[in-house]
Nucleic acid binder design. Structure first.
Lengths: 336, 336
DNA sequence: TTGTACGCGTTATCAT
DNA sequence: ATGATAACGCGTACAA
């Protein structure tokens, strides 16, 4: 078994420097490149990552930080899909992924991540308006890409969607469908998504000169909060409920059903995310598609670029959203 | 900023070998140890992992391989909890975690994992009776711990539960509750859990001298298969349904409800896993608790031990399961 | 107990 | 285009 670049060099009849060049796309004559490459393939040689990392300063490993409470994490498929999107894109770039979940304090997590001087860069979920872990990573010299962002960020690279715009569009869709008393069950307050979607909803209602004060109830992105919120809103006599995400909508749907009301005839229902299950609800759920996997993939490619050009301009990517109108808000052929 | 062991040595007035000993619990006099440690703490010095790895051969990073189809992965909270259990335990041991999901072929994944000569060891989910990725890892010289196992394994270290025994116990519980026509919706065929739970069910039925031929329908561990399976079984006039896992039970519960039947009065319902939501179903679900997080944690500590003593005996851990009897199978006070 | 010196496998610099 | 050689930062025989 050929284990070092020196053995390989001997086998190919060149110096180890040349082998290194072949391995790293340095300038080598075509003839020798082919000869060396043949030996590399034949012996299935892989350079040792630690040695490579030590000498070059980069490792081909990126960190992914999802510091989310374990009760929230993975309860909402949003995070799973994000993880899969990143995992896919990283594999495509033949990079490895180190993962940190929220099982230690933010300080300790930050400490460890910065301690692993092995990382080429880091992708971190930044869903809260304020987050010391995110601040710490941005303050470090580790290339960092946020998923989500804080409006105060002026220098950070991030990937996000325009929650305000999307929520406005959804609310407008409900208005145009003839709904007037449109309730909103918010996401967790203090999160970008929660606050921005509320803002978009309010903006559309305000533009239509409709009051919304008694039509907003706080949720937390989870199903139970959807059920609780819907109960309150139904008592207030709403004819539509716009939930801050799909999981919340599932809870709302259950309560609407339990009260013997029909969707969409009596109450229109809308979500946000377009997770896999949304299309398979009964009735299929109108929602906002935000391409969660794509966000993960985009974060990865932004990070790759940032690693390649550390002094380049920060990349701020706003991915498009799409209104996905299904039967939970419109017409709805009555079932036989 | 102190970045190398040499600078630290100079600062402490000792050689770098002594600093290294302090860092790695070598034999040093108490006095110098204290003096050096003080400087280490004060400067918040961390040895460079790549250099350390290059010199010592170990890295403090373990691989976690969950090569599951993306449509299955994370749809069932089982995998999330497993991941969290491992993540927790690894953080406790101040080890890092590299994650591989199933986004490439098994061959390619195996190739990459073995290529990263950085790993101290791997934990791999081995839910299928046959799995070339698992075989490849076991055949390599990388310390490997399986979660789940194949009965043919004689030398591998693994963590698992006794599915046969647990399923037998659950079926017996249903029998003792007076049920006779007990249906079973299997897990995915070809998986250890699917096959073994079926075996346990059959064993109990056979012991009670009850036929079960027309009472078994194949599922795949997911909710839709629970709905489909329940529809078939109800047509066969069952008075109890034992589902291969909790997710399946949710689907079954929905269909039972839709038919206007009551749980447990008309049909008793049982699951397997005791995932978080099981206790909050209506009615609360009788199930088998298998401590998924604990399995993850145990796998980590088994791996740590294996890394420490590579030639030690393989550790095979069968974690206990617990029958959790809730109202979906017994009595059930009629609600007001 | 402590220090010296070498090795780990690679990349990068400087000649040629 | 290629080769010698010096880093990269740490662990560890071996010597003292």
């Amino acid at each position: 078994m050929v284990r070092t670049i020196d053995e390989l060099a001997k086998l190919s009849g060149v110096s180890r420097a040349t082998v290194s060049r072949v391995l790293n796309n340095g300038s080598v004559s075509d003839a020798t490149r082919r000869r060396v490459q043949a030996v590399v393939d034949r012996t299935n040689f892989r350079p040792h990552p630690a040695a490579r990392s030590l000498a070059s300063g980069r490792s081909g490993v990126v960190g992914v930080v999802m510091h989310i409470d374990s009760h929230l994490l993975f309860r909402d498929p949003y995070f799973s899909q994000l993880l899969q999107g990143m995992s896919d894109a990283l594999a495509d770039g033949s990079a490895g992924m180190m993962l940190w979940l929220g099982n230690r304090s933010k300080e300790e997590t930050l400490d460890r991540i910065l301690g692993i001087r092995l990382l080429d860069g880091v992708i971190v979920t930044a869903h809260n308006l304020d987050d010391s872990l995110v601040d710490g990573l941005l303050a470090s010299d580790l290339p960092t890409v946020l998923i989500g962002h804080r409006s105060a960020d002026r220098t950070a690279s991030y990937v996000d969607v325009d929650h305000v715009h999307a929520a406005d569009a959804m609310t407008t869709h409900l208005l145009e469908s003839g709904r007037r008393r449109i309730g909103h069950i918010t996401g967790m307050r203090g999160t970008v998504a929660g606050e921005d979607r509320l803002t978009g909803y309010r903006r559309a209602m305000h533009r239509a000169r409709l009051a919304s004060d008694d039509l907003v109830v706080d949720g937390d992105f989870n199903e139970p909060s959807g059920a609780a919120g819907a109960a309150v809103l139904l008592d207030h006599g709403v004819d539509a409920i716009f939930c801050a995400n799909d999981a919340t909508a599932v809870g709302a749907l259950r309560v609407i059903r339990e009260r013997g009301l029909r969707v969409p005839e009596d109450v229109a229902l809308a979500g946000f995310d377009d997770l896999d299950f949304a299309a398979h609800l009964d009735p299929p759920l109108t929602t906002v598609r935000q391409g969660v996997r794509e966000q993960g993939a985009q974060a990865v490619s932004s990070l790759f670029q940032l690693v390649r050009d550390r002094d380049g301009a920060p990349s701020r990517v706003i991915l498009p959203t799409e209104l996905v109108i299904r039967q939970s808000t419109v017409g709805g052929v009555p079932r036989a």
